[in-house]
């Protein structure tokens, strides 16, 4: 099982090593395009980010299988405790941030967290993190937007339309804009955080390389080519930008999802409506 979890990472690293073109100087670019599939409206380029996110999904699937195989009531295995901890944590998180009505949201929140965190952490292995591709994060944000709208629609389209003219009716355009801005800001927040980390890492690395060339360039032979100054600082930056920021952004994305969905859902109205409907059905 663990082999199945590690294998996609190895595949990703091999792909990265095989297909990365030789870089000259500073180069900050998007994902590599492996090949392009012609599609209506727009061609679909199969890029590093697509492949990497698929690999991440396979990794998570095998991790799940590893954690949950051989579950027993008495919890003899340590990995079972991990699985239980994950389940209980996400359930309590959902319960505290949303209401009891959303108890089925725990797997969704867990999947957002896992996908986002693992995608961001791929950069620790030198792979292209899919979260620094706007399309990937945008897809998640649009799914969250669909969920928000779905739960707002629960009370009927009329109630939904009425919610736009909430304080005064002529503010409706602003409400529409703020509604649309939600997924965009979520996508750009996640994307911008990961990408800015990557950009700063590249800038610092190249800057340190130049500095090393200036200071230690006089050393004879291959000694002059060793980037002495690149040894410590990029690792610290990587710990902050890849590890901390990646996990934090995953957490924030999941929290914002929960808060937006829970705050958009008019629970009291919905429950009152459902009670009324049940009463009418009983008659």
């Amino acid at each position: 099982m663990l082999i199945g979890a590690v294998a996609p990472l190895v595949v990703g690293i091999i792909l990265k090593v095989l297909f990365t073109p030789e870089k000259v100087g500073i180069s900050i670019s998007g994902a590599l395009i492996y090949f392009t599939i012609p599609m209506p409206l727009q061609n679909l380029p199969i890029t590093e980010s697509q492949v990497n996110s698929a690999l991440v999904i396979v990794t998570i699937l095998f991790l799940c299988l590893y954690f949950t195989h051989g579950l027993t009531v008495k919890a003899e295995l340590k990995r079972q405790l991990v699985a239980e901890w994950i389940v209980k944590q996400t359930q309590s998180l959902v319960k505290t941030n949303m209401s009891d009505y959303f108890s089925g949201f725990a797997p969704f929140v867990a999947s957002i967290m896992a996908l986002s965190a693992f995608s961001s952490l791929l950069s620790l292995f030198g792979m292209y993190p899919p979260t620094s591709d706007i399309n990937i994060v945008g897809g998640w944000a649009i799914l969250v937007f669909i969920l928000i709208t779905y739960y707002k629609m629960k009370c009927g389209p009329l109630h939904y339309a009425k919610s736009f003219g909430d304080p005064v009716p002529f503010l409706a355009p602003l409400n529409v804009i703020s509604e649309v801005a939600t997924p965009i800001s979520m996508a750009f927040r996640h994307y911008g955080n990961v990408l800015s980390g990557a950009v700063i890492s590249v800038l610092v690395a190249t800057g340190l390389q130049g500095l090393t060339n200036i200071i230690f360039g006089w050393l004879p032979g291959f000694l002059g080519n060793i980037p002495f100054l690149q040894i410590g600082l990029p690792a610290i930056l990587s710990v902050y930008f890849d590890l901390f920021s990646g996990c934090l952004q995953a957490f924030i994305f999941a929290m914002l999802t929960m808060l937006y969905v829970a705050s958009g859902f008019p629970e009291e109205d919905y429950l009152a409506r459902r009670a009324k409907k049940l009463a009418r059905l009983k008659k």
């Binding site: 927040r189 911008g192 955080n193 800015s196 950009v199 952004q249 924030i252 929290m255």
Partner: peptide
């Protein structure tokens, strides 16, 4: 606080995206 920071960061990130 982390949530608030993340939301406050959004404007900065819009600027970052435009700069990029």
């Amino acid at each position: 606080m982390l949530m608030g920071c993340a939301i406050a960061e959004t404007t900065g990130l819009y600027a970052l995206v435009i700069a990029i």
